[in-house]
Design a protein around this nucleic acid. Structure first.
Lengths: 225, 225
DNA sequence: ATTTAGATATGATATTTGTCATGTTTTGAT
DNA sequence: ATCAAAACATGACAAATATCATATCTAAAT
C-alpha cells in the first residue's frame, strides 16, 4: 500500500493540511482504484461512503436535467477531491462523476474524513476554503449561463480548458471532449455547439484534428460577443 | 446592547453551534445596523471586515455580468448570514447585497468568526454544511439556467419564493420583486419577464395586485414546459 | 479489409428570446 | 392634488438557438 504522506497529489487539495500521523491513518484505510474512460465513478442519487482523491486522469461532474439532458457542471483533474460536498451534507450525491480518461483514484472512508475534520481545524478550514471557492465559481457560472451567448460561453470554455488543463506536446488541449460534451458544458444543443466550433474554425480562432482542438487565436476568442 | 444568546435568529444559522460564552463574545463586539429598502449592504469587489447576520428583512445578492446587466444569484432572508464565503476565502466579495425591504442586520467582526472557527469544530462543521448546501443549490441553478426555458425558470422562481418565503395574510407572495428583479432572477430581458408574467395571468396561473403576485394554480405552474 | 454504430457536419425551418418603439399605469416627491 | 420619473405593458421585428432531416466521416469490432 502506497503511503499518502509521500504522495505529491495531496499537495493540491485539503489533505495537505493533515499531519504525518493523520496521513498514515488514511494510508491504512484507503483503497486504490483504476477507472476506465467512460466508466461511472458514482451516480446522482447514490449515497457515498467516502471521498475520492483523484491521483490521475480527468472526469466530468454532470447532472441530469428534467428534460433528460446531461449538464456538465465541472471538470475534475488530478489532485481534486470528489464527493466532499455530499459527505459533508450527509446527503445523496447531487452530481454524477464519469471518467473522461483512464483514471486512478484513492477512496478514503467517510469516518476517516470526519475524524480529521473534527480534530484538525486547519484541515476543516482548508475544506471550507475549497468549498467557498467552488461556490464562487458556481455562482460565476450561473451568471455566465444567464447572461452570455452560446458563442461566448463556448469560447470561454475553450479558454478555461486551455488555461486550467494545459496542452499536449503539439499544442492541442489536454482535455479531449466530444462535441456533445462541449454542448453539455455550455448548455446548448449538440448541433449548436458543432456549428459554433465550425465557425471558430473558419475564422481561424481554433484548428482541429479529429476530436482534438488547438487554440490558434486566444485574443480573438476573448473578443467574441 | 442586545445579547446574541437570547436572539432567536441565531437558531437559523451556524451561530447556533456556538457556546453561551462564545455568543457573549460576539455580543460584545457586534454592531447593529438598520438598512433601508434599496440601500447597498456591500458591493462586489469590496473587502469585508466581517459577516452580517440578517435579523430582519430580505435582500438580494447580485453579480454584474460583462454585458452590464445585474444577475440575482440568491435571495437572503431573516436568519441567513451574509459574507461568510468572502471572509473564508479571504478575498473581495463576489456578489453585491442590496436590501429589498427595510432590514436590520448585525455586523460581526472577522476576527471573532475566525476565532470560533478555529476553536469550535461544531461551528466550523456547521459552516461547512451551510456552504455545501449553498454549493448544491448553486449547481442546481446552473443546470436550470442551461436547460430550462424562461417560462419554466420564471414558474420555478415563483414557486420557490412561495415555498421559501411564504405568503402575507391575503395570500400574496411575501417577497415583492419588481419585474426587472424577476428578469434578473431568471436571467432574461425585463420585457420577456413581463410578457411571461402577463401570460401566466391570462392563463389563470397567477393573479396580481400592483407589484404583488399570488399563485392561483400551483399545479399548473409545475406543468409549465 | 469490411462493416457498422456513433460522431460530426450542415441545410432548412421552427421556436424562443431579445431589442426597440411607444403607450399606459403607478409611485413618490413636492 | 399635481407632476415627473420610474415601472409596467405590449406590438413589431430581429437575432439567437433548437429541432429535424440527411449526409459524411471516424473508429471500433469482426
Amino acid at each position: 500500500m502506497s503511503k499518502c504522506n509521500q504522495c505529491i497529489i495531496k499537495e493540491f487539495n485539503s489533505l495537505k493540511s493533515l499531519s504525518k500521523e493523520e496521513l498514515m491513518g488514511i494510508s491504512g484505510c484507503k483503497t486504490s482504484k483504476f477507472i476506465k474512460k467512460g466508466e461511472i465513478i458514482f451516480e446522482e442519487g447514490e449515497t457515498l461512503k467516502g471521498v475520492y482523491c483523484v491521483k490521475d486522469g480527468i472526469c466530468k461532474l454532470t447532472k441530469l436535467s428534467a428534460n433528460g439532458k446531461d449538464q456538465i457542471v465541472k471538470l475534475v483533474v488530478k489532485g481534486d477531491l470528489l464527493g466532499q460536498r455530499s459527505l459533508i451534507s450527509d446527503e445523496a450525491v447531487n452530481l454524477s462523476a464519469v471518467a473522461l480518461t483512464n483514471m486512478e483514484v484513492c477512496f478514503i472512508p467517510k469516518a476517516e474524513i470526519f475524524g480529521n475534520l473534527k480534530n484538525n481545524s486547519d484541515f476543516s478550514m482548508d475544506m471550507l476554503k475549497q468549498m467557498a471557492n467552488d461556490l464562487k465559481e458556481s455562482d460565476n457560472v450561473v451568471v455566465n449561463m444567464a447572461q452570455k451567448s452560446v458563442k461566448q460561453r463556448l469560447a470561454e470554455a475553450l479558454m478555461y480548458i486551455h488555461n486550467s488543463f494545459g496542452l499536449d506536446n503539439q499544442g492541442y488541449l489536454n482535455v479531449v471532449l466530444s462535441r456533445e460534451d462541449y454542448a453539455s458544458v455550455v448548455g446548448t444543443a449538440t448541433e449548436s455547439a458543432i456549428r459554433v466550433l465550425s465557425q471558430f474554425k473558419k475564422e481561424g480562432l481554433i484548428s482541429t484534428s479529429g476530436k482534438q482542438i488547438k487554440i490558434e487565436n486566444m485574443e480573438g476568442l476573448k473578443r467574441i460577443e
